[in-house]
């Protein structure tokens, strides 16, 4: 570890360099070759637009609105997906019963649900939440399910020998903690999908604010510099959420997983 760390720190500068290089090339192409901000706004245009958007205060309202959609969708996906995954992973009967339903619904692209989302929930935050829910619930179900399926039998038997014999207790004290790394990585995959669905769901005008909503709004206004600002912010928030989850998963499970994997 000690040998590898300084090297990777040194290598990190390559990453910074690459981003800086991209910005410079982008600026040159935009200013000297394309020369038309509508087709390709330059980094300086984008930065000016960003300052403008921060000053008039919409950006923060968009962020808040999007986070509400995200929370509604992800929250519902967790509340529904984890129990379904547990039932399917623990009981063969539940698996046989629910598996065909899950497998039939899963391949339907989440965005194909948008018409029904609007019919059922109207142009409200609930319909955006519903589309996000559809996108994120399946990775959670599948990972919870496979986590439960791969709980080593010896842990269950050790639990039984120590007086943990009821299904409910075995799930709570043995199977769930054993499956948690898999559940957590399912949640991580789900947040990525949820974030993609969020933009699409907001395009249909379910609210007055929202990162996806205003990205589309500024396209209609031909403010492509603002569109790029929204694109970058969406990307950065997605990255940040993923990094936080990955950090949490690594640190939480590392202490009991390292040697199991190696």
């Amino acid at each position: 570890m000690t040998k590898i760390l300084p090297k990777s720190h040194k290598n990190r500068w390559f990453g910074v360099l690459a981003i800086a290089l991209c910005l410079v090339i982008w600026e040159i192409v935009a200013v000297a070759i394309v020369k038309y901000s509508f087709i390709l706004p330059s980094p300086t245009d984008v930065f000016t637009a960003f300052v403008e958007l921060v000053k008039n205060g919409t950006l923060i309202l968009d962020f808040e609105e999007s986070m509400v959609h995200f929370a509604v969708g992800m929250g519902a996906a967790l509340l529904v997906g984890i129990p379904i995954g547990i039932f399917m992973g623990w009981s063969r009967k539940c698996d046989a019963f629910l598996n065909p339903i899950v497998e039939l619904l899963r391949p339907i692209p989440p965005l194909a649900w948008i018409p029904f989302a609007i019919i059922w929930f109207g142009l409200t935050l609930w319909s955006a939440g519903f589309v996000i829910f559809i996108g994120s619930v399946f990775p959670i179900i599948i990972n919870t399910y496979s986590g439960f399926r791969s709980v080593p039998r010896i842990y269950v038997e050790a639990g039984k020998m120590l007086g943990c014999t009821k299904s409910r207790d075995l799930i709570r004290h043995i199977a769930f903690p054993a499956a948690l790394p898999s559940v957590a990585s399912g949640i991580r995959i789900a947040t990525g999908v949820a974030w993609m669905c969020l933009v699409a769901a907001e395009l249909f005008g379910v609210s007055n604010y929202g990162l996806g909503k205003n990205l589309w709004q500024y396209y209609n206004l031909h403010r492509m510099d603002c569109v790029v600002v929204y694109m970058l912010i969406l990307g950065l928030i997605g990255l940040l959420v993923d990094m936080l989850l990955r950090y949490y998963i690594d640190h939480h499970f590392l202490k009991w997983q390292t040697k199991e994997v190696a």
Binding site: I154, Y155, A158, I174, P177, A178, W256
Partner: peptide, 10 residues
Amino acid sequence: FQEYSLFPWR
């Protein structure tokens, strides 16, 4: 048990 049966999360 023969194999390692301690709960790794505890």
